[in-house]
């Protein structure tokens, strides 16, 4: 009887052990949900920074005046990453400029694609394949009136039980003609990681 109990228990152990073993499972997740995998700069931070900065810019009274009857032309200068991590700051500026563009309040010129545009125009004029009357003209582009630029900095502190990271993101809008900073805002993120005594 005891043997039977032992065999059954061992069998069950094996079944459960197999069932609970570390299996890698692939799932699709919600790309916009809050992600807390680790303390480094993550998708939630990127989305939060982009959303807050766009909202703040679109709500500011100065921008209300600037965009009253016109859609000002902007260009994004790169964001300076002053944190201790590698962060793709172009991804943050991409999100911000996409949101601003989609709001219908601003227009953008893309400085990252100037060479590609020049190549295309050269081909149209010098390639001998495009009808000269239908080629896009040189020297007709519209210059940016405003420049968007910013900084991303961090303060990291940790002891043996706890890590704390603080990000500060500053964004400014400069009038290129007058050199005046028309708008500025900053947003902060604090993330902490602490050891929990409860395992599950």
């Amino acid at each position: 009887m005891n043997k039977l109990a032992l065999v059954t228990t061992l069998g069950l152990t094996l079944v459960f052990a197999a069932g609970c073993a570390n299996k890698s499972v692939v799932r699709y997740g919600d790309a916009t949900a809050v992600e807390t995998t680790d303390i480094n700069f993550g998708s939630t931070d990127l989305q939060k920074v982009a959303a807050q900065m766009t909202d703040s810019l679109l709500l500011s009274p100065v921008v209300g005046t600037l965009t009253q009857n016109t859609r000002p032309v902007m260009f994004v200068e790169r964001l300076k990453n002053k944190t201790s991590e590698h962060i793709d700051t172009e991804s943050i500026t991409d999100s911000i400029s996409t949101k601003l563009l989609r709001s219908g309040k601003f227009r953008f010129v893309d400085m990252g694609r100037v060479e590609a545009a020049r190549e295309q125009l050269k081909f149209q004029h010098d390639g001998g394949m495009v009808d000269p009357n239908k080629a896009t003209q040189f020297g007709r582009q519209i210059g940016a009136q405003y420049m968007l630029y910013g900084n991303l900095s961090s303060i990291v502190k940790s002891n043996q039980d706890k890590s704390d990271v603080y990000y500060k993101f500053t964004l400014r809008l400069m009038d290129l003609e007058s050199g005046l900073v028309e708008w500025a805002d900053e947003t902060e993120i604090r993330k902490t990681k602490a050891k929990e005594s409860v395992g599950w």
């Binding site: 152990t13 459960f16 052990a17 073993a21 395992g199 599950w200």
Partner: peptide, 26 residues
Amino acid sequence: LCTRQKITGSLAVILVSAIVIAGCAN
């Protein structure tokens, strides 16, 4: 021998419970 078997049996039950709780709880 009987006592030993009982102990082994109980240990096995505890082990199973531990695995179930730790591994499958989440």
